[in-house]
Simulated assay, not measured.
Amino acid sequence: MKALAIGLMSGTSLDGLDLCFAEFEKQDTWAFQILKAETLPYPEEWENKLRNSIHLSAEDLLELHSDYGFYLGQQVKDFINRYRLENISLIASHGHTIFHQPQRRFTLQIGDGRAIKLETGLPVVYDFRSQDVLMKGNGAPLVPIGDELLFSGYSACLNLGGFSNISLQSGGKRIAFDIAPVNIVLNHLAQKLNKNFDEHGELARKGKIDLTLLNRLNALDFYHLSHPKSLGIEWCNEHIFSALHKTETLDALATFTEHAAQQIANVINTNHIKDILITGGGAYNTFLIEKIRAKTKAKVIIPAKDIIDYKEALIFAFMGVLKMNNEINVLSSATGSYADHCSGVMV
């Protein structure tokens, strides 16, 4: 069986919209090939709209949900026309997360899939997280189904995006959980120095570690919870940004980079991981990768650029294909829901 799908991913760090057109084929096992992919930086207007969306009234948020859906549809349509893509089975859209509070049984990723379908005329799968939250899961992480079926050659897969999350085999099943914030905090601090992000970690490299702050961060309750567990912007607003604001920015960058590396290495070492595939924007943060390597004996693997940049968008495309075939695309062992299930709304 073969399918061609486009995956859309917009991360919490607002780096841009990732589009990934890939072919999936199943014989004995699943195989994939990324055929075309790119990241479209958000225009300033859209970046501001998404960044401030958490503060909108219900009516304005519903309006944004529709508008952003049409925006996504237009970007996909342009992407398809630009590269003359054909025989597309479906579009799978993660949307952009505004609220994520699984303990209160809701999560919200805006970008109405019906609007994407109206713009493109193609089948669309969207809203992958809500069903899992209703099933008493965290609604995250969802990528482990792709790690299990597409990247099983590695002991573990680590994504360094807005948040770091890991998936690995443990006790005969795939477990996964968020480890710590990464780019959502580092980008915020870099922007105070008029940079979009801390390129290669060079700003953090200039700072000094504030041990008092480091100890305060490491003592946060989340790090001592057992999996499954997940993080959202609300948690960062409550526990991280308030802790950093009194520290000089370069020192805050140095301290938070050390904090993230320590938390990641703790997980690698505790789980006796032998080799780990690292993807996401943080894979380019040389300083952070150096720190992770120094704190663990695991073999750290940085793959080709298209996998670093587009693994999440690729896996959402794959989840859409699984949904189309009515196959399981969310693992309860990763999210904590009461059963594996086939998630997403298809229109």
Rank of each mutant, 00 (worst) to 15 (best):
I268E: 03
I268R: 00
T270R: 14
T270P: 02
T270V: 08
T270D: 15
N271E: 13
H272W: 07
H272N: 15
H272F: 13
H272A: 15
H272K: 15
I273C: 09
I273P: 11
I273Y: 10
I273Q: 11
K274S: 14
D275A: 09
I276D: 01
I276A: 03
L277M: 12
L277T: 08
L277P: 04
I278L: 06
T279M: 12
T279G: 09
T279A: 13
G280Q: 07
G280I: 11
G281N: 03
G281W: 12
G281P: 06
G282C: 09
G282N: 10
A283V: 08
A283R: 09
A283E: 05
A283H: 09
Y284Q: 10
Y284R: 13
N285K: 11
T286S: 13
T286V: 09
T286H: 13
F287A: 01
F287S: 05
F287Y: 15
F287G: 00
I289Q: 03
I289R: 07
I289F: 08
E290S: 14
K291H: 06
K291A: 09
I292L: 06
I292S: 05
R293T: 11
R293G: 01
R293N: 10
A294P: 00
A294F: 04
A294K: 12
A294R: 03
A294W: 00
K295R: 14
T296E: 03
T296L: 02
T296M: 04
A298K: 06
A298Y: 06
A298G: 05
V300I: 15
I301T: 10
I301C: 04
I301S: 05
I302F: 09
I302W: 11
P303Y: 14
P303A: 12
P303I: 10
